[in-house]
Design a protein around this nucleic acid. Sequence first.
DNA 1: CCCACAATCAGCCCAAAGTACGAGACATTT
DNA 2: AAATGTCTCGTACTTTGGGCTGATTGTGGG
Lengths: 227, 227
Amino acid sequence: MAIRLVIADDQAMIRTGLRLVIETAPGIEVVGEAADGRQVLTVARQLRPDVLLMDIAMPGLDGLSAARQLLEDPEPPKIIMLTTFNTDDNLHASLRARVHGFLLKSSPAEQLIEAVRVAAAGGAVIDPAVTPRVIDSFAAQPQPVPAPELATLTPRELEVLRLLADGMSNPEIARDLRIGEVTVRTHVGHILRKLSLRDRIHAVVFAYEAGVVRPGRGRDDVRDGSC
Amino acid sequence: MAIRLVIADDQAMIRTGLRLVIETAPGIEVVGEAADGRQVLTVARQLRPDVLLMDIAMPGLDGLSAARQLLEDPEPPKIIMLTTFNTDDNLHASLRARVHGFLLKSSPAEQLIEAVRVAAAGGAVIDPAVTPRVIDSFAAQPQPVPAPELATLTPRELEVLRLLADGMSNPEIARDLRIGEVTVRTHVGHILRKLSLRDRIHAVVFAYEAGVVRPGRGRDDVRDGSC
DNA sequence: CCCACAATCAGCCCAAAGTACGAGACATTT
DNA sequence: AAATGTCTCGTACTTTGGGCTGATTGTGGG
């Protein structure tokens, strides 16, 4: 069965161009087109194509927002983003949306066709010209330096450190661990001494820098109900 | 001028197979081979090829370590990693090393050849089969939630918050900003009130979670000289 | 001109945190 | 049996931090 494809771009010329290019490829069938984000949503949800080839810049609802919404659906189409200029913004936002392809419009036709096939098969394609930037971003994401002093902490102390890094006070830690506050003080003291830290605040910083705790892993007990 | 290529793999059969495949491609010339990591280092540094096609698993010095060392050199070759099985470990380590390609040995010959050309041209290639995982990792990396309350902070208060998140005490912040400690206390008080935080420790946690400060950006004034 | 806001500074009070010193219970190792 | 390490708890003391109630100065907008 042929791969069913929908093309989304605000410029009619580009749409017909893409359609012509794609239809030279066997096994791929263009089943629909859309000229803006809203059309994409209805068309894609109605036709349920295998792959969606979509420009990022479109009037009204842009391609990225449309992609994000579609990817919320059950069994969404594989989405390949197309863009004229490759800004980091477009790239990062697309990857964050977990699209299945990111190509430049300057790409040769074969690459486009190959990308459609790959996406339909469950793979993903990033334009070779932008891939170095993806790798750079990947390499740049800070990996916590495993502090050797961490090994000197006893299991209990490490436990206390985690709670400490969550912003808990000594009485709170005591309640959480079902021990006396004095004991917590002792543990905290040991932690500070072993890690050569001045106070619990430095301990929090250390915990984040060493990867003992990580940001973004929703520790919602810190924020209150103000939002 | 032809692309000068070196092949590194511990299995002689694979090397000859790769060589045969590659030499069918015009414009690419295999100028050398290596059977382990140490050989790669000497061969690559002596022949100075444009591209290095290297297996990850090799006896002695493995391909990844060799790649890391080579990429420290000035004008290193473009390095494409090859691997039989695609574990996340291999993938992440390779990308972290900033290689220019990551392919599976199961890839078709044309893809290999294309990857060599792309790498030589300054691009990079990731096997379409593993690209979804790369995108997933990318999307999974926590992007700090931009807390709206941050906007309510005055510039000065934000400044204080940053120093606060570095673990500085009130007197230290005062010295750093050349203001009185009392003023710092006032600022801190305002910060805590505006952000609905209990104490400065929660402020540190907030700063990390909201991305006001990021881990890994070497704030070495926190740790002391114990190492 | 007045008002709101930001930034600066002051004194007072109390809770929290950190330090010092000590000690008992329990486990493992020597 | 002795030593070591961990976890637990206690008392007393000092320093730091945060809340509270003020004040002054400068700046920008209505």
